[in-house]
């Protein structure tokens, strides 16, 4: 569904991503893991059209994304849940969700939008409770759910999430990842960028490892979870290892 070849992204004269190639097939859940500053977010910005300065090839469903504006990319079926959530604080929860369906209104699909509201509220009951509350007053986890709900309102074919676990408590992270897994089982193709490599790989089909802007490893999630390099650099120790005395 998504095919990237030799993507090179620069901020001015600084090259952040050096010739990265990756692919996402329909229905897959792919994770990109790597340390801070590895270029993961830059990669996502390029995909969503928010970064203008990139070379290489990004093809989504046989359409070349080069030069496409972000709204056009959203219309072709890619929705992003940005880093740090970036929900619209002065707007209410409902208004935020309505914003997510912005492109839908344009196509005159108002009834579909109503359906989607229900779908999102069902997935995130807490949002139904807080429907008229200002988004800026929600907790971190609730904001993340709102951000995901907002992206879902555009009925995306590819959902891109930028560090959904950032700044959230472990229990909330678990919940969010459960939601992501549920979405994937409903047929949404998902591209996930995460620093929490263990949680991400556990729910993914395949993974890619990015280091200082270069792709150094890829493979099935199982392969990566047992790979020594990955374990050392990104997986840290699972809390279970402390109790069982296992060596991670």
């Amino acid at each position: 569904m998504l095919r990237i070849k030799n993507l090179k992204c620069s901020y001015g004269s600084i090259v952040a991503v050096h010739g990265v190639s990756l692919s996402v097939k329909k229905g897959e859940l792919i994770s990109i893991i790597g340390a801070n500053g590895a270029g993961k977010s830059t990669l996502l910005l390029a995909i969503c059209g928010l970064l203008k300065n990139w070379e290489g090839e990004i093809v989504f469903q046989d359409k070349d994304l080069k030069g496409m504006s972000p709204p056009a990319i959203v219309r072709s079926g890619i929705s992003m849940v940005p880093e740090g959530r970036q929900i619209f604080s002065p707007l209410s929860v409902m208004d935020n969700l309505k914003m997510g369906a912005y492109t839908m209104y344009r196509k005159g699909l108002k009834s579909q939008v109503e359906e989607d509201f229900d779908m999102v509220m069902e997935m995130f009951p807490i949002l139904r409770e807080r429907a008229h509350q200002l988004a800026g007053t929600l907790s971190g986890g609730e904001q993340q759910m709102l951000a995901i709900g907002r992206a879902l309102m555009a009925r995306p074919r590819l959902l891109v999430l930028d560090e959904p676990s950032m700044g959230l408590a472990p229990k909330i992270v678990e919940m969010i990842f459960n939601v992501i897994t549920t979405l994937q089982s409903q047929g949404v193709t998902i591209l996930l960028v995460e620093q929490n490599a263990r949680a991400a790989l556990k729910i993914s089909h395949r993974g890619y490892v990015l280091e200082t802007g270069k792709m150094v490893l890829q493979g099935s999630a199982d392969e990566l979870l047992v790979d020594d390099d990955v374990k050392r650099a990104y997986l840290g120790r699972d809390y279970g290892d402390f109790y069982d005395g296992r060596d991670a």
Partner: peptide
Amino acid sequence: NASLAVGVN
């Protein structure tokens, strides 16, 4: 940015 990401021109 978030606005763009949602499809607002």
